Amino acid sequence: MTDHTTAVLSAADALVAAFGRHDTKAYFDAFAPSATFIFYNLDRTLVDRAAYEAEWALWESRDGFFVKACRSTDRSLYIVGDVAIFTHAVETDLVIGGKSITNHERETIVFVHQPDGRWLAIHEHLSPLPM
Results as ranks from 00 to 15, higher is better:
Asp43Arg: 07
Ala35Met: 09
Thr45Gly: 08
Leu15Glu: 14
Phe37Cys: 14
Ala17Asp: 05
Phe39Asn: 13
Ala50Val: 12
Val16Ser: 02
Arg44Lys: 11
Ile38Cys: 03
Phe37Glu: 09
Ile38Tyr: 03
Ala26Cys: 10
Ala14Asn: 11
Pro33Glu: 15
His22Thr: 07
Ala18Cys: 09
Asp29Ser: 14
Ala30Asn: 09
Ala51Tyr: 02
Thr24Lys: 08
Tyr40Cys: 12
Ala35Phe: 03
Phe28Cys: 08
Tyr40Thr: 12
Gly20Glu: 06
Thr45Trp: 07
Val16Asn: 05
Arg49Gly: 13
Glu53Leu: 03
Val47Asp: 13
Ala50Trp: 08
Ala14Lys: 11
Asn41Gln: 11
Asp23Gly: 01
Asp23Met: 07
Val47Gly: 12
Phe39Leu: 15
Glu53Thr: 02
Ala17Ser: 14
Val47Ala: 14
Phe31His: 12
Phe39Trp: 06
Arg21Asp: 00
Pro33Gly: 08
Arg44Ala: 06
Ala51Ser: 15
Ala35Asp: 00
Ala35Thr: 13
Phe31Ile: 03
Thr36Ala: 12
Arg44Thr: 00
Val47Lys: 07
Tyr40Ser: 13
Arg44Val: 04
Arg44His: 13
Thr24Asp: 11
Tyr40Leu: 01
Ser34His: 15
Asp29Phe: 07
Tyr52Thr: 00
Ala50Tyr: 05
Asn41Ile: 01
Tyr27Gln: 08
Arg49Tyr: 10
Glu53Trp: 01
Phe19Thr: 00
Tyr52Val: 03
Phe28Asp: 10
Lys25Val: 15
Val47Ile: 15
Thr45Lys: 12
Ala17Glu: 11
Gly20Met: 01
Val16Gly: 00
Arg21Lys: 08
Thr45Asp: 10
Asp48Ala: 09
Phe37Asn: 02
Asp48Phe: 12
Ala30Thr: 09
Asp43Thr: 09
Lys25Pro: 02
Phe39Arg: 07
Tyr27Gly: 02
Phe39Ile: 01
Arg21Gln: 11
Arg49Ser: 05
Ala14Gly: 12
Val16Met: 00
Ala18Leu: 09
Tyr40Glu: 10
Phe31Tyr: 15
Val47His: 13
Phe19Pro: 01
Ala50Arg: 14
Tyr52Lys: 06
Tyr27Ala: 11
Leu46Cys: 13
Thr36Lys: 13
Tyr40His: 14
Ala35Ile: 04
Phe31Gly: 08
Ala50Phe: 04
Leu15Met: 15
Leu46Gly: 08
Phe39Asp: 11
Ala51Gly: 11
Ser34Lys: 13
Asp23His: 01
Ala50Asp: 15
Phe31Thr: 08
Arg44Met: 07
Tyr27Glu: 03
Tyr52Gln: 06
Asn41Thr: 10
Ala18Met: 08
Phe28Trp: 10
Asp29Gly: 02
Lys25His: 11
Ile38Met: 11
Asp23Val: 01
Thr36Trp: 02
Pro33Arg: 09
Arg21Ile: 10
Pro33Asp: 15
Leu46Trp: 07
Leu42Thr: 14
Ala26Ile: 07
Ala26Trp: 00
Ala17Pro: 02
Ile38Phe: 02
Thr36Met: 14
Ala30Met: 10
Phe37Arg: 02
Ala32Gly: 05
Phe31Arg: 06
Asp29Pro: 10
Asp48Gln: 07
